[in-house]
Each structure stands twice: as structure tokens, then as C-alpha cells.
């Protein structure tokens, strides 16, 4: 059963309308990326998925359960939300304890806690830090601990808010590898500005663009992320690879443009060269 966001509106107590009629479905084992400018309502939308925010209008169904009729703890068991800034949540004296925190909240027994923490440490490559204070780690490592502390209870829907923020290239690649390893067994939803991070994913995610509290486009990455008009409404610029191919086409060369990554670009250019030869 899926997550169904049905025509959701949300107004903050301060009067700011953050969501204006959002509808969205996340299937089992789905891979969805949500992109859009600051203040578009992305984080607010994520918070409706585990009930931290209850819609002012419309409803969110998680596997058929209306989020208004369930606690955040109950919903979180299925929808694991990793917040943007790990500094807002890390507090334990060791990484191991930090990762076990949620399991204790959910009432897992000690044996299972041990097993799962071990699995999460391994999955995220954090074994060597198990006895280190999470507050002493670097930004990228903290991010991974935060991710591990949610992944550990194996939520059916894993939701990541800006996972690449403040990470260097190597850390991003490591993160991509980890996320790819998680795909196929659970749904993964990512909110990010980082368009180059998105285009290098295999398999490609479904992309939803948000602006001003609405979803302005939803579809295949190669369609949504190459449309300059849509991208500019979401304060994004076309990724570098398709940008090159579009430029070639503007110069009058008959090259394919529904291309996002280097491998595809190479093939497109090869077939162009063959055609010309």
C-alpha cells in the first residue's frame, strides 16, 4: 500500500501558506526526488508524511491510515524522516547509542537492537566510529550517523531532507552508493537542490518540482530536468551534460537531447559522429 497525499493544504500558525493543494502518491519501493527553491514547501511536505504536521485541508494516508488519526511515533515506524541538520538531533555519548536511540523508543529487545545497530553501522561505513561521540565527527560523518539512526529500524519509506547539504564530492558519491544499495527494498524520497547529484542516479528517480507550495511538474527525470521553462520556475538550472547537448542542437547538429549523464552523452555524441561520417 502506498502513501497518498490528497489535495493537502497547510497554513502555519504565523499565517504563511506553505502547501497549496499538494497531491502525490509514493508507491512501495518507489524512488522519488522532490526539488524546488527555498520556501517552496518541501520540508513542510515531508513533515506531513509522518504526521509532524497535520494538513489544514486535505489528507495524507500512510498505508491507508489517515495521519490525523495516528501519533507521530506510530507513523514514524513506517515513514523514517532524516532531518536536514544533524546538529539538531545528535545527543548521545557514542555513535552506537545514537543509532540505538530510536530502537529503544520503539521498544525493540536488546538482542535485536544489537543486531540492527551492527547492520546500520556496516551499511553506512561507520564501524570505526562506534565508540566515538557523534558530536566530534565531521559534517559528512554526522549526516551519515543521522541517516543510520533512522535507517536502523528499516522504515518502509525512507525520507531524506537535503542529504547532500555541506558534503564534499567524495562524501556525496559515498552517499549515492549507500542510497542505491537501499533502493528496491524500500521507498526512498529525497528532497534536494543538488541537480547534479540527482542526474547521476541509476536507476533514475521520478522527479517532482515544487514552487510556491504547489507541485508544478512530476515525471521522469530526463523529461522534467531538461525542460528549461520548468527548471527556471523551480529556481534550478539545467544540468551540465544536457546543457552541452542542447547547445550542440542549437548549433544545428542533430543530436539527442533526452540525456542526463555522461555515459548517455557519450553514446549520443558517438551516434552523432557516426551519422555525420
Amino acid at each position: 500500500m502506498p502513501i497518498e497525499v490528497q489535495y493537502v493544504w497547510y497554513t502555519y500558525p504565523s499565517g504563511i501558506e506553505a502547501l497549496k493543494g499538494i497531491s502525490l502518491t509514493v508507491e512501495d519501493r518507489d524512488f522519488l526526488v522532490i526539488m524546488g527553491p527555498n520556501g517552496a514547501g518541501k520540508t513542510t511536505l515531508l513533515k506531513t508524511l509522518n504526521g509532524l504536521i497535520k494538513p489544514t485541508k486535505g489528507r495524507v494516508l500512510v498505508d491507508g491510515v489517515d495521519t490525523r488519526h495516528a501519533t507521530v511515533a506510530e507513523l514514524s515506524r513506517k515513514v523514517g524522516l532524516v532531518f536536514q541538520n544533524p546538529d539538531h538531533q545528535l545527543f548521545c555519548s557514542t555513535v552506537e547509542e545514537e543509532i540505538a536511540f530510536a530502537l529503544r523508543n520503539f521498544g525493540f529487545n536488546e538482542e535485536e537492537i544489537k543486531e540492527r545497530v551492527e547492520w546500520a553501522l556496516e551499511t553506512l561505513g561507520l564501524e570505526e566510529y562506534r565508540d566515538v561521540s557523534p558530536l566530534m565527527l565531521s559534517g559528512g560523518e554526522k549526516k551519515r550517523v543521522a541517516l543510520a539512526s533512522v535507517l536502523v529500524w528499516d522504515p518502509k519509506y525512507l525520507v531524506l531532507d537535503e542529504p547532500t547539504l555541506g558534503q564534499d564530492y567524495a562524501q556525496k558519491e559515498k552517499l549515492r552508493e549507500i542510497i542505491c544499495g537501499l533502493l528496491g527494498q524500500r521507498a526512498v524520497i529525497i528532497v534536494t537542490h543538488d541537480i547534479e547529484f540527482v542526474v547521476d542516479f541509476r536507476p533514475r528517480p521520478r522527479v517532482a518540482l515544487m514552487a510556491d507550495g504547489r507541485i508544478i511538474a512530476e515525471g521522469k527525470a530526463e523529461e522534467v530536468l531538461t525542460d528549461p521553462e520548468l527548471l527556471s520556475r523551480a529556481s534550478l538550472v539545467r544540468p551540465q551534460v544536457p546543457e552541452v547537448l542542447f547547445n550542440l542542437r542549437e548549433k544545428g547538429l542533430p543530436v539527442r537531447t533526452d540525456v542526463l549523464d555522461l555515459v548517455e552523452a557519450r553514446d549520443a555524441i558517438i551516434s552523432l559522429a557516426r551519422g555525420l561520417a
Binding site: K47, N50, L52, T71, V72, A73, S76, R77, G80, L81, F83, N85, H88, Q89, F101, A102, N105, F106, S149, V150, W153
Partner: peptide, 16 residues
């Protein structure tokens, strides 16, 4: 604001 975010983050990890 930070206290609110932290509360949300911990509630998302099952803290009641």
C-alpha cells in the same frame, strides 16, 4: 525555532 526543529527530529525517531 531550533527547539521546535529538534523536537520534531526526535519525535521522528519515535520519542514521545
Amino acid at each position: 525555532r531550533e527547539a521546535r526543529t529538534t523536537m520534531d527530529a526526535q519525535r521522528a525517531r519515535g520519542l514521545e
